[in-house]
Design a protein around this nucleic acid. Structure first.
Lengths: 220, 220, 220, 220
DNA sequence: TATGAATGAGTTTTCATTCAT
DNA sequence: AATGAATGAAAACTCATTCAT
């Protein structure tokens, strides 16, 4: 079989994955599997299961991610990055500023941004520089959406990026064993209700402080 | 309170009703400890730790609750019951129908209704008769709040009890290690935004179906 | 069988070990098994094997000793203590001061004092107060043996307690897989040669410093 | 050096003897790294670490030494060979026979002969012909030192080569994490005491048997 | 009944060894 | 021939649950 695969040339990608390129491929497959399984089974899913789903041996997972925290880190990074992409797409796709925000919110749900929630829980190094940078990118992108909507008078002015991101994450947070909270039947619905609450003019006095994600976890 | 009265018989007892009372006290202490720790550390907190916090031996916990599911069951029951109480109080306390709903929502957050979320996850027997009955009570109470607000023209008419309860649970869901998502600084704020979205007139077309909690685990 | 054992009264100890007293018994059995197996197989012997040899489940071992270090700690304590006993016995048993030292040295070998060596290696907390105290006791006892022999003019005066203890430990250090370096055929022989070197008058100039065990591990 | 000459053939080679020379260089670097790390971290040091220290890939190590035993084998061979060299040098360098023995003993310590100890432990094929031959060379060389000292009346006559080699190995045996038992401050000192015990006239009756290294693993 | 202790099964993690370039 | 990556088997350690007083 070695000879066979060695002669497989122009094929887009033979089914037998090859080392050099495959190291990267494996790494990505692990992250993908982890992202899916964190959503599906919660953040405590056995890493051996993740490895199995990724189609690699457990030790390969550990070679790439020395411990669970490292894997979680990478997944958070990936989800954050993809969500940022959605934010930028939303700007481009919608002329109306509130429509853009709205589009982003629903797209972020589809990216399972809610899966970030349990990962931000205790003992997670949310201040790692790499994460910090990626989160900044996300917050800036969303800040753009928010401020534009505010400028257009479409958004109440007493809210902040953190309000959007945290509530969005919570509302779309997966219930392990149920998929992503039956995302089609409930989640988008609740997001819509939440978006309605965001619109100007403000109806009520908001309690609490308009904080960034940054503040989360910094107890007063 | 309900559990207490169920076992408190009319049998004549010496004025020091120690033995049985202690057993009940233990049971309640365990449920209380479990509720707190589920919120604080997530639903996978070691049961030995729960027993320690309750101040009893682990075997005492297991005598009262044969396995984790039984304990979760009891906690869900307790939280549901207490939340129902809040709903009923809200009716009594507020003349304005929307204010009542609003009061209930914030009170439910303080009861940590969000801690129910992980319990709605896979592998939890949400259809147990006892739970079903208790959930009916809650849904009826909230249904009262909702329909009164609708009748008064204060609530958009395309929402259902399930919308309120599920979104409420998600928005207040605890992040283990952070307590209840810094409930004072964020959660009440997001709840308020959500409530604003609930008000009439409806601003947007809602996707999904207006379902009860019942529907939640029934995949389409 | 419960009834049977419950009626076993005056028996010194029924073969079915009972909890309360057995907790202690188990603990001791684990330490004993560990001591033997460290000698026989080295300090990296799987703890599960130690548990098996002790006749308990692995978790029982971990309940008593949270990690390998804790178990090693206890074994070192036990061996040190038993060796101190041998030193005190030697004083009592031999009128001649050098004979007493000699007797101690050979007795310490039989206590497998050499098994302490690998345990003093890297990453072992040799300065734990409990260990420190026990080691002091040993050093004081041996100091007594040494100084008496010196006073009697039977021991060269340029040696110290540490010389005796370290060399003794090294010479009796077990070779895992061979028992205790075939202790009867070689070790006592080498100890005797070493003892001969200790006698007065000194024949040679000693290099190095006469240090206590304390100094070991404190690199200059 | 021996290994080098064994593979260095007389075949005509281009003036840049790169390929084969590199292979040999690698092999030697691995053995050197292994010797150092066995001393420093014990015989269970991960082979990947050895490869890293040697500056080669792990697979290169495995190409040269199919398993740990093969590497240990080679290290033992190297240390034995170098120690034999020291014995022969000692003969040449010292006119006095006991001085020669003494010089050898301290030189062997510097060669880390103590690192051989764990290799004498269970599961090591000490009877491999190559090792046997190399050990014979060492024993013959030391036998020369010993018998000459005996003939000169400088050495008690009830000792054997094995006594010297085994005790020497034990006394200089490294404590992983501490290097070679702080060789300058302790080991040479203890060796000197041991040497003093070897001198004629014998002071005590020796227990055990005067055996060769050969006997070491043959249980009675 | 209440309890501390015991236990086995499950998870994380490491490492010798093999694979494929 | 040299290498980085892959792998399974083994070891450390945890925890739900049971046992025996």
């Amino acid at each position: 079989m070695d000879t066979v695969s060695r002669t497989a040339t122009g094929a887009p990608q033979p089914r037998t994955p090859r080392p050099r390129a495959d190291a990267l491929r494996n790494r990505e497959r692990i992250v993908t599997a982890a992202r899916e399984m964190f959503v599906e089974f919660g953040p405590d899913v056995p890493l051996d299961e993740v490895a199995r789903r990724a189609g690699v041996g457990n030790a390969t997972l550990y070679r790439n991610f020395p411990d669970r925290a490292a894997l979680v880190h990478e997944v958070v990074l990936a989800v954050t990055s993809r969500t940022t992409d959605r934010a930028e797409e939303a700007v481009a796709a919608e002329a109306d500023p509130f429509a853009a925000l709205s589009r982003f919110v629903h797209a972020a749900a589809d990216e399972r941004i809610g899966a970030l929630c349990p990962m931000l829980s205790g003992g997670f190094d949310k201040d790692h520089p790499e994460l910090l940078a990626e989160r900044r990118r996300l917050e800036e992108a969303v800040e753009g959406l928010v401020s534009r909507a505010m400028s257009a008078g479409r958004l109440r002015t007493d809210i902040a990026v953190g309000d959007v991101l945290v509530a969005l994450s919570q509302l779309t947070r997966p219930l392990p064993g149920i998929g992503c909270l039956d995302i089609d039947r409930f989640t988008h619905r609740h997001l819509q209700l939440f978006l309605d609450g965001l619109q100007a003019p403000a109806r009520s006095e908001l309690p609490g402080t308009a904080a960034t994600l940054e503040d989360l976890r910094r107890r007063p």
